[in-house]
Nucleic acid binder design. Structure first.
Lengths: 338, 338
DNA sequence: TTGTACGCGTTATCAA
DNA sequence: TTGATAACGCGTACAA
């Protein structure tokens, strides 16, 4: 690891000159010395010490991607195709902009905040934060923050949110189910916060618009922890006969449910129709292929990173960006007699 | 961002004392001042500036995880459950050891090398490198390197490899297929390098041990690029009738194939048996559930990170670590008449 | 056009 | 037990 100082010494010139050449401040230096330095740099394959540079400039060129995992989902988080696709989109965008990505996964907001400030990241992308977590972080660090899929009206004063029109997505899908003759439609999820709340709302709205009454019993709660999963699947499958269709909050749950139903001799879509949300590999490869709500996850990641990059350049950005959804009709939903 | 200097000023003492308390050099400082400083630190929530620390100590506390993507697979790489699980294992281990992970994805080795040297990472975990890529990187940077799933005898002189007994895995599975009466067994993959080569070898070995002749025609080549995928699936399905079983090089391909077969009215396992390799979510959730070779991917990531960490502490480690495989018998393989 | 000198925040050495 | 000061490598005013 050769340093500027060392180069200057060997070339018998000052560090300033070398530094100027490195940064292309070409007006400040004669063509001759410029060439000498440039050649030497190439020869020794000079790479600046990033720590020194960051220290001197008080910036890091690092964008932190912090994923907050719910404690009960931690083991699965990184395996969720949704998460990997998101990471892919973010990483690519950050890299192409000459920044670096530091990935941090934790279920503890405080831990995440420590990490952020330790590295003095230039900006932060947050995923999985509950409503006020993002606010807490943004109040402490005055760096630009972009949240992904965070529902918090209050938060939008503090950070940009990149999200999805979740409510519209389930609204459209449930309307489709209704158009296929379904009236007894359940909703399956593991919680009712944030994204799940929005998707639940769309479902309820569609029911209500069609004059179908919603009752608590129509909410099927799945428990994702591996110890509980089988039990909760059991309960859900038992109650499946009360419905002709189940709107699942994610493809993962939809496919998990289809497998469980199949194992119990309940046929999809002949005995019951299943709809998902996300449109990932899981649903595409399952048979029957999953009818689902499409969202472009990679684009979400790209958009989040792009927005943050804009903010770092001082450009103004809207404080909320919503991506559209789209229905993907495949084979897991059947037509029934109303 | 409060600094040590500032703290020292406010407390009317020297930076040395503050620094000593921070680092628990408790022998060097009186209990009284220690308490004063400690209380103050808690109050102001001091977080060290990592750039300054790294500069002073000439280390970075960063471990780079570089994923090299094959150009034709790039779009899928990050969505592969295998990759996400690996990242999860590595990230967790690195974080728990007080290090940080910088993720870098590229299909260009030179680009990866630049990145590594820019950040002066303390160590490097490489995945997806072809045989001599790892050697090139390790020759240039004298930092510890751990490769994952790299097949290169020569390379083991330069770095540690964490891998899997791939050959044994397919060997066991194909033996199982044979025990179920199968004699016409194809092998499906998209290439014959590295891991795929080893898995192919195990397959051939099992055939050979059972006195079954292998011919080129038994190798079914799938083309993963999305433009080609459908075509190659078509060809493969046409040739499926020549076999009673297909040993797939991954769960992803096994499930992709099962979906394609189902779409063409070919039943699994009644008409043809399918075996996979990896044992991930895809095969677990498919119906029929996939009979496959299990590997513990997260453990692989953990092991790679742990090994690197050991090397950073100066401990000696073996230059090759092979994880075992295990057969998972589910429902995609049927018994046939020999 | 080139060079000197200082600051960035931390750690380490050595003196008090 | 504490404090002053010199590194670490880079960037940049400012001086020459």
């Amino acid at each position: 690891m050769i340093t500027i100082k060392e180069i200057a010494k060997q070339l018998n010139m000052s560090t300033t000159t070398v530094s100027n050449v490195i940064h292309g401040k070409t007006g400040e230096v004669s063509d001759e010395t410029k060439k000498i330095v440039q050649d030497f740099l190439d020869k020794v394959d000079y790479v600046p010490n990033i720590n020194a540079r960051n220290l001197a400039q008080n910036e890091s060129k690092i964008i932190g991607l912090a994923l907050k995992a719910r404690a009960d989902k931690y083991e699965n988080l990184i395996m969720d195709p949704f998460v990997s696709e998101l990471i892919g989109g973010v990483e690519e965008t950050i890299r192409n902009a000459g920044y670096f990505m530091m990935l941090y996964i934790s279920s503890d907001t405080v831990e995440i905040m420590r990490h952020v400030s330790t590295w003095n990241v230039d900006g932060l992308i947050l995923f999985g934060m509950l409503n006020d977590d993002g606010i807490r972080v943004s109040e402490k660090y005055k760096k630009p923050i972009v949240c992904i899929d965070t529902y918090s009206i209050e938060g939008l004063k503090h950070f940009t949110n990149v999200g999805l029109d979740d409510e519209q997505g389930t609204y459209d899908m449930v309307n489709y189910l209704i158009s296929q003759g379904h009236r007894k439609i359940a909703f399956l999820s593991d919680n009712t916060n944030g994204v799940d709340f929005a998707r639940l709302s769309g479902y309820k709205k569609a029911l209500s618009d069609a004059g179908i009454k919603y009752s608590e019993a129509d909410f099927l709660k799945i428990r994702p922890r591996s110890e509980d999963l089988e039990d909760s699947l059991n309960e859900i499958c038992k109650r499946a006969k009360d419905f002709t269709a189940i709107m699942c909050v994610s493809d993962l749950y939809a496919v998990t449910l289809m497998a469980a139903l199949t194992d119990r001799g309940i046929r999809v879509p002949e005995d019951i129709s299943i709809a998902g949300f996300d449109d990932n590999m899981l649903g595409q490869l399952h048979r029957p292929a999953l009818t689902t709500v499409h969202q472009d996850v990679k684009k979400k990641g790209i958009l989040a990173a792009d927005t943050l990059l804009k903010q770092l350049r001082g450009e103004k950005t809207p404080n909320q960006l919503l991506l559209p959804t789209r229905l993907i009709i495949r084979d897991s939903v059947a037509k029934v007699d109303g």
